[in-house]
């Protein structure tokens, strides 16, 4: 197998995630697109780890998985609070900071 197979697939998934973050209005869907981006990064880490025959890539992928789990927990808690105060999870409704 070529290393490039994995890197190009990961780049495609990353770009689809970037599109999702920019195009979606629903907060839950934006969080799902962020998960897509983090998984693309994990594919890269493990692929490079296999390429240089070391286990370090996998260790860092595990750290990324842990931090992503923490991020989803806090992100959904914030969305829940937003829904309770605004009755909506639409990103457009969160414009208090807009001048």
């Amino acid at each position: 197998m070529w290393l490039n197979q994995f890197l190009v697939l990961s780049a495609v998934l990353f770009s689809i995630g970037v599109y999702g973050v920019l195009a979606r209005r629903n907060g839950v869907l934006v969080l799902m697109s962020i998960e897509l981006i983090l998984n693309a990064v994990n594919i890269n880490l493990v692929a490079f780890g296999s390429y240089v025959q070391t286990v370090v890539g996998e260790v860092f992928a595990l750290f990324v998985i842990t931090v992503a789990a923490a991020e989803v927990g806090v992100g959904l808690a914030i969305l829940l609070l937003l829904y309770r105060n605004r009755r909506s999870v639409d990103i457009h409704d969160v414009d208090m900071m807009k001048g």
Binding site: L3, N4, L7, A11, S15, L22
Partner: peptide, 27 residues
């Protein structure tokens, strides 16, 4: 804008990995 940003990211990253690791092979 989102489509253009996604395509730009895809173009840059795919070009970079192909230029950088063109003939690297996994065991």
């Amino acid at each position: 804008g989102a489509i253009l940003a996604g395509l730009a990211v895809a173009g840059v990253t795919i070009y970079t990995v192909i230029a950088g690791f063109g003939d690297a092979e996994l065991g």
